[in-house]
Amino acid sequence: MKKLIKYWQIFWHMRRLHAMRMLEYRADFIFWLLISFMWTIFNFFFFAAIVNVTGVIAGWSTAEMYLLMAVFTILDSFIWSFFYNNMLQYTNDVFNGEFNKVLLKPIDSQFWLMTQNNNYANLLRFATGVGMLFWALRELELQPSILDFGLFLLLLSFSALFIYAVWFIISTLSFWVDKLDNINEIVPNVRRSFQVPHQVYTGIASTLFTVILPLGLVSSLPSEILLGRVSSWSTIFYFMTFTLITVLISRWFFNLSIKKYSGIAN
């Protein structure tokens, strides 16, 4: 219990430190605030244009697509805030031989790697996403219950956790290769896989994106809960279980990599 309190305190301590840093570089912060907002608008445009071609994508109406886009924006701004910088620092430390300082600290290494950094510039995006969400719900004249919202938040957390685990496993590969620039850009590059409704994936694509590596479910499942159109509860259960297993694998792989690092590194 004492440990949990310590980790909770350190987590917020780091957030405070990064807020101080952000104030140091105000211009930079405002710039990125605007750029990330610009990209959100662009993305919205992109999919709005496509949806408006026939008004329907894989059984999702225009307004339902907007809700999906809102959920994506919320999720995406979260992972850009909390995962991108941490993973970048993690892989850089490994490639530059600076990883020892992580191992020397009396704190769980995986926790430290995920909490040492963050970025506030995506706040505006996050707010936009939330705004879009409620606007879409109103357009659709939907009023999800508290239970629905609770379930939505739960599933959203699992989605974030899943992306984290996948990203962390990829980043941990940095222990095993000599050098791979832009290893941190792999996950951001496949974000489109969860910008679209999962019904878009058929055949082999479906097996790949909804079973083997269920990135396709990441935004769709939480959205379906709010929209009251859950296609399959077993899929939700599958996704949650898959996420937990991936998290366990990420920890196991990390420990394995540390062993290798300490055995052969100089």
């Binding site: 350190i10 301590h13 780091m14 430190l17 600290k105 009396p106 704190i107």
Partner: peptide, 12 residues
């Protein structure tokens, strides 16, 4: 000082 306080928290 900020780094010092952070270490204080990490090292309890």
């Amino acid at each position: 000082m900020e780094t010092f306080l952070l270490n204080k928290a990490i090292y309890e």
